[in-house]
């Protein structure tokens, strides 16, 4: 496996007047509540260790106030940690001086914001070209580039409009075009779709997945919505009160929750629509006769539709023409019932 694009190591963030002193207390084992009640400091993040792989979408999910925004802002150092390391392409960004840091923000990372954060006095085209304008590039070079990305997100013809003339969904399309025009390999998205209506949100998720197939960016996506997280994530990190409770491949978390909190969290989702055949298939047994074939990447919902509700027998699992395993319908039915915490 290749080295991670971004590596977060033992990261702590304490908000308050004297974080260093509070940090000592936390190292001695003081918890979030006590620290807040007795010392008036907020333990924003506690011992975070996450690796983010190149070309993957890592979704950081948690309820409001769990520290998601704080965490993502450590990656481009809009917030400095109290303790710990943030490695980007192997370099510790905490060692960066002002100049190097700015250079990283200009070239290596772009960001999309929950409330769009467009410049109200600049046209859509100028907003889209924010990154090259900041870098001081030539208008003749960046304008075609910005136009290209505006067209790519479906906003051709709106170049000369102003942000206040656009709807929320369109504003966020500009936000995405702005991030893409920066041409940075890393994209940070803080609740980028949370302020949008459900239908538009689905559109935007599809747009992001579609773009990602082509662009292969390293995306850090923040969300408080489990369905969104499961749809987008290659790697899912679940935060609670500033701590990582579980991280891993989303289907794996769904089938093997390690914590009661996560069991609660995932109890309401439509498992048939989220789980895929690959997550529950088994190696092919020779002595079983198969009643049909299913695709490895199919969701269980699709399989149930395909079998017409038949819940016995086994199917051959195929991927790109090859047999890769077998699916027992009894396993499928069992997997639809939310599990207790694994190991219980």
């Amino acid at each position: 496996m290749s080295a991670p694009m971004i590596s977060i190591r033992n990261l702590y963030k304490i908000f308050g007047a004297n974080p260093a002193a509070a940090m000592a207390k936390v190292r001695e084992g003081m918890g979030k509540e006590e620290l807040n009640a007795d010392y008036g400091h907020v333990l924003g993040l506690k011992d975070i260790n996450v690796d983010l792989m190149e070309g993957e979408i890592t979704v950081i999910m948690g309820l409001s106030g769990s520290g998601k925004s704080t965490l993502v802002r450590h990656i481009n150092r809009l917030i400095d940690p109290t303790s710990g390391e943030v490695l980007v392409q192997g370099e510790n960004v905490l060692d960066y001086g002002e100049e190097t840091l700015r250079d990283m923000r200009r070239k290596t990372m772009s960001m999309v914001f929950q409330h769009f954060a467009l410049l109200p006095h600049r046209s859509v085209l100028q907003n889209t070209a924010t990154a090259p304008i900041v870098r001081g590039e030539d208008k003749a070079v960046y304008e075609p580039e910005a136009r290209k990305w505006l067209e790519r997100v479906g906003l051709a013809g709106y170049e000369d409009s102003y942000p206040h003339q656009l709807s929320g969904g369109m504003k966020q399309r500009v936000g995405i075009a702005r991030a893409l025009t920066s041409n940075a390999p890393i994209m940070l998205m803080d609740e980028a779709f949370s302020a949008l209506d459900p239908l538009i949100r689905t559109d935007m998720q599809d747009l992001l997945l579609e773009l990602q197939v082509e662009l292969n960016k390293t995306i850090v996506f923040i969300s408080h919505d489990l369905d969104e997280a499961l749809k987008l994530a290659d790697h899912l990190v679940i935060l609670k009160d500033g701590e990582v409770v579980q991280q891993g491949e989303p289907q794996h978390i769904l089938l093997n929750p390690e914590d009661d909190y996560i069991v609660d969290f995932i109890s309401d989702i439509n498992r048939a629509r989220v789980l895929r055949v690959r997550s529950i298939m088994e190696p092919v047994k020779q002595d079983v006769s198969h009643v049909g074939e299913v695709q490895r990447e199919a969701t269980l919902e699709q399989v149930i539709a395909q079998t017409g509700g038949e819940s016995i027998g086994a199917y051959l699992v195929k991927h790109e023409g090859d047999v890769v395993g077998e699916l027992n319908m009894s396993t499928l039915v069992r997997s639809l019932v939310p599990q207790k915490r694994s190991g219980q």
Binding site: R102, R106, S110, M111, L118
Partner: peptide
């Protein structure tokens, strides 16, 4: 928010 965006895009 807008100031933060300016910062995130590396404005001096």
């Amino acid at each position: 928010d807008v100031l933060e965006a300016a910062q995130a895009f590396g404005m001096t």
